[in-house]
Design a protein around this nucleic acid. Structure first.
Length: 467
RNA sequence: GGCCCGUUCGUCUAUCGGUUAGGACAUCUGGUUUUCAACCAGGAAAGAGGGGUUCAACUCCCCUACGGGCUACCA
């Protein structure tokens, strides 16, 4: 069983956007499969017709695509397998591992109320469990599994270890509803089995379900998959991540401009470790990822660390890839796309932009000088460094720039000597230069801007502010 | 209520019976600097509490506290 090719799956229910916790679950499944030459499948758990929406399904696809988590084959719909699920329920019935229960929901509710009132277990004990078919009424029924009354059910979990339940704690859960539709508990097992899933990696809110689902595997005589129940991601206050904490959906992080590579790295490291390694490539993540190094306790989401990791990824990213990522970012956030000239400029400037930004918006902000055309309209802050004295200095500096050879070293030398000759600090001349070139107080180095802009454009911008 | 899971610096984590309990982010102090980012040097910062087991426990066992999950004809 361990030498079978790995098959993992991500099985979200389409009732909202792709939650950050779901994204990490998907990521772990993807990493595990991709690192072992296995398959990563996507199944949409849409059996709850009332809550499932096509928009949510689209959001899940979009979120996974943004994160770069590609799945094998087409995504499947759980709902479409309803007939197959029902057939399995009836097969369990035929095998004597399930039974028809004619209890009404009112009867069950009354049982639970009474049980709770008396402090007994609220697990429903159906009176129909051992009733012969000949004595069945002609009435609506559900199909329940026959949970063993004694002994125990053991889950060997790659993250949680060995977890044991006394069988009398397991209820005869419903597999087929009275309207003939399958419940989630049945459908997951059938689908995972039919899809050949070898490793079920999911949130630990499903840990207890694993025991109940084992009943179905056993009833059908199917191999139980390898389990790995991973702890949930919490907000900064340790509570389950929710809207109160700010962004919860991956599309929000995309809109905030976190690069996907940084997001993957951060999410991978959240709850999983490989010694002291914090910053790594996708390739390393795939090679290193394993189930045994997943932590057992929930981890808190830390935006500061996310930013730090993202900054490191941007700094080493390929220039063209970053330009492409910015293009999709602008499109995804409904902003105007860049012109060919702007794209070319951005590409030329990328070397000095990427190492000073942690998010895409920060990078775009610093790229202002290359994305804007003359005449530059200085913002309020930068305008302050363009008073009379500064303008005079720029005017004096200009001739020097007309003749110098246009290279980083020579430019630095010229400006430094100019500052020295005027008995002033480099900063005193750099700020007005920055204001003239970028119209902002924050930008790349003035020398980098001059190089990227070129001599003509630089001189033109300097001329613009000299009045 | 019942069952199950968890608990190392503020945060993410390393450690898998013997360490001055390590790293990273954040934070603080210096330095560098042309703004931002970065960089260099240094500081502060942790084993929830209580019992065991052991020559030795963060590490194994038990109890308590706290946090979380499940307990649906939801997924």
């Amino acid at each position: 069983m361990s030498d079978k090719p790995v098959v993992t799956r991500f099985a979200p229910s389409p009732t909202g956007t792709l939650h950050i916790g779901g994204a990490r679950t998907a990521l772990f499944n993807w990493l595990f499969a991709r690192g072992r030459g296995g398959k990563f499948l996507l199944r949409i758990e849409d059996t709850d017709r009332a809550r499932s929406t096509p928009e949510a399904t689209a959001a899940i696809y979009a979120g996974l695509k943004w994160l770069g988590l590609d799945w094998d084959g087409d995504a499947t719909s759980q709902f479409e397998g309803a007939a197959r699920h029902a057939a399995v329920a009836h097969e369990m019935l035929a095998r004597g591992h399930a039974y028809k229960c004619f209890a009404t929901q009112d009867e069950i509710q009354a049982f639970r109320d009474a049980a709770r009132g008396e402090g007994r277990s609220t697990l429903y004990q159906s009176p129909w469990r051992d009733v012969a078919p000949a004595d069945h009424p002609d009435a609506p029924y559900v199909i329940r599994v026959k949970a063993p009354k004694s002994g125990e059910t053991v889950i060997m979990d790659q993250v949680q270890g060995r977890v044991v339940w006394k069988n009398d704690q397991l209820d005869d859960m419903i597999c087929l509803r009275s309207d003939g539709t399958p419940t989630y508990m049945l459908a997951v097992v059938v689908d995972d089995h039919d899809m050949g899933v070898t490793h079920v990696i999911r949130g630990d809110d499903h840990l207890a379900n694993a025991a109940r689902q084992t009943l179905v595997y056993n009833a059908m005589g199917w191999d139980v998959p390898v389990w790995a129940h991973i702890p949930l991601i919490h907000g900064p206050d340790g509570k389950k991540m929710s809207k109160r904490h700010g962004a919860t959906g991956v599309e929000e992080y995309q809109a905030l401009g976190y690069p996907a590579a940084g997001m993957r790295n951060y999410l991978t490291r959240l709850g999983w470790s490989h010694g002291d390694d914090e910053f790594f490539s996708d390739e390393q993540a795939r090679d290193w990822f394993n189930l045994g190094s997943i932590g057992k306790s929930p981890s808190r989401f830390d935006t500061k660390k996310l930013e730090n990791i993202c900054g490191q990824h941007m700094a080493v990213a390929d220039d063209a890839a970053l330009v492409a990522e910015i293009t999709t970012f602008l499109a995804a956030t409904g902003r105007e796309k860049l012109s060919d000239d702007q794209n070319a400029g951005l590409t030329r400037a990328m070397y000095c932009l990427k190492e000073r930004s942690k998010t895409l918006p920060q990078l775009i902000d610093k790229a202002y000088f290359i994305l804007t055309d003359r005449p530059i309209e200085p913002d309020e802050k930068s305008a302050r460094s363009l008073e009379t004295v500064s303008r005079g200095m720029l005017k004096e500096l200009t001739p020097h720039l007309q003749t110098v050879s246009w290279g980083r070293d020579t430019l630095e030398t010229v400006v430094a000597e100019f500052a020295l000759a005027h008995d002033t600090k480099l900063g005193k001349i750099a700020q007005p230069l920055r204001a003239a070139l970028a119209g902002r107080t924050v930008s790349p180095s003035v020398f980098d801007m001059m190089l990227v802009l070129g001599r003509d454009e630089t001189l033109a911008r300097l001329g613009d502010v000299q009045g």
